[in-house]
Structures are given as structure tokens and as C-alpha cells.
């Protein structure tokens, strides 16, 4: 399960949803894996305003991953200009500018879209309920008395 998913998950118990401490869910005993994916800067740029940055920083710290910057990156920092000689040009005189994903974009892509929780649990900060993650799938079915 991609870490990005945690941006859109909270406790399944209705009475918890109104409590700010139910978001984000806290990963515990996590076994992480990297699942490579194609980077899409447009996707990242549109995603940026949707990210609960402080909460994601907290999760990333809890998982012991390198810290995210204190504030969310600016959309303009996701691309950088690179100079290159066009393919087939042997004169070296026709240098062109191309836009490529910046390191900021690559880092963001790595942590949100390629870093996945394979095993572990997600814990509600309000009620303490634990949701198991098995083979990359979190299970939010509640026992009868909590529905």
C-alpha cells in the first residue's frame, strides 16, 4: 500500500471520524517495500494541494524514513531545466532546453508513490483500534460491536 494512500484514510469507526486525532492513522510494525512506478509530474503537481503535509511528515518520521521538508514543495520546483544536445546532432552547436523532473519531484514520487507498506498495522490515534496490513492490503472490516 502506497504511503500516499494514508493521506486518504482514517478510522472506520464513525465516532472517531469527527476527532482530529483519528487522522492520520499511525503505521506500526511496518515492513516496507519499494514498488517502482513511472514518475508523472503533472500528477504530482495536481496532488500537491491535496496532501496533508504535516500529517504525511509525521508518518514518514514514524516509519523512520528520511524527513520530508518542513513545508510542501512549490509546484514550480517539480521541474528543472536541463540543457542537452539534440539526438543526431554531431556539431554540438544546437543545444536545447528540456524540462525534466527535479530531485524534489523524484523524492516526493519515491516516498509517496513507490514506498509501500507490505505488512504491519495502522493504528487510530483516537480509539487505538488496529487495522492489519497484510500483503499490502489494509483490512478495515470492524468486529460487530464496533460497527
Amino acid at each position: 500500500m502506497k504511503l500516499l494512500t494514508l493521506n486518504f484514510l482514517t478510522c472506520a469507526i464513525k465516532t472517531c471520524k469527527t476527532s482530529p486525532s483519528s487522522f492520520p492513522l499511525h503505521p506500526q510494525d511496518s515492513e516496507l517495500e519499494i514498488v517502482e512506478a513511472d514518475i508523472n509530474v503533472l500528477f504530482l503537481r495536481n496532488m500537491l494541494p491535496r496532501l496533508m503535509w504535516n500529517e504525511l511528515r509525521l508518518i514518514v518520521n514514524e516509519l523512520g524514513l528520511p524527513s520530508l521538508p518542513e513545508t510542501a514543495p512549490d509546484a514550480s520546483s517539480l521541474l528543472e531545466t536541463k540543457l542537452q544536445v539534440p539526438e543526431g546532432d554531431t556539431t554540438g552547436l544546437n543545444i536545447e532546453k528540456i524540462e525534466v523532473p527535479s530531485q524534489v519531484a523524484k523524492d516526493l514520487h519515491r516516498v509517496l508513490l513507490e514506498t509501500c507498506i507490505r505488512e504491519g498495522k495502522l493504528v487510530c490515534g483516537n480509539c487505538g483500534h488496529e487495522y492489519k496490513v497484510m500483503e499490502g492490503v489494509a483490512n478495515f472490516l470492524l468486529p460487530g460491536h464496533l460497527v
Binding site: L4, L9, T10, A12, K17, L25, Y131, A138, F140, L141
Partner: peptide
């Protein structure tokens, strides 16, 4: 991403 959840107890923020 996919999760196991009941449609009447969705674990998504409003």
C-alpha cells in the same frame, strides 16, 4: 491502492 472495507463503514475522511 486497494483496501478491504465495508461500504457503510468507509475509512475515508469526509
Amino acid at each position: 491502492s486497494v483496501i478491504v472495507a465495508d461500504s457503510l463503514s468507509l475509512p475515508h475522511p469526509s
